[in-house]
């Protein structure tokens, strides 16, 4: 008997996906189904939290150029 599971499909780059998988590995509380390189289904109520966590992670890895001192 086929099943239908409510969730949110995430489409992203493989690099982002691996971060999501890593975030999930602690408690397994995000991912419902790992589909392929660029697709995941996650729990509906966790989307916001996931976005937040992802943002935090990206902040660690991304160094925005330091603003030049506005001396002029």
């Amino acid at each position: 008997m086929p099943r239908a599971i409510r969730g949110v499909l995430i489409e992203c780059e493989p690099a982002i996906k691996s971060i999501i998988v890593h975030l999930d590995s602690k408690n397994n509380d995000f991912i419902i189904e790992d589909l392929d390189e660029q697709h995941l289904v996650i729990k509906e109520n966790m989307v916001f939290l996931l976005k937040q966590k992802l943002e935090e992670r990206l902040k660690e890895t991304y160094r925005p150029e330091e603003p030049l001192a506005d001396s002029d």
Binding site: M1, P2, A4, I5, V8, L9, E11, C12, I32, L58
Partner: peptide, 19 residues
Amino acid sequence: RMRTTGGFLFKDFDTPQDY
């Protein structure tokens, strides 16, 4: 970086024909 779509995942079909 992420595109999200709400909806339903359909799986566990009995036969390939069903799917």
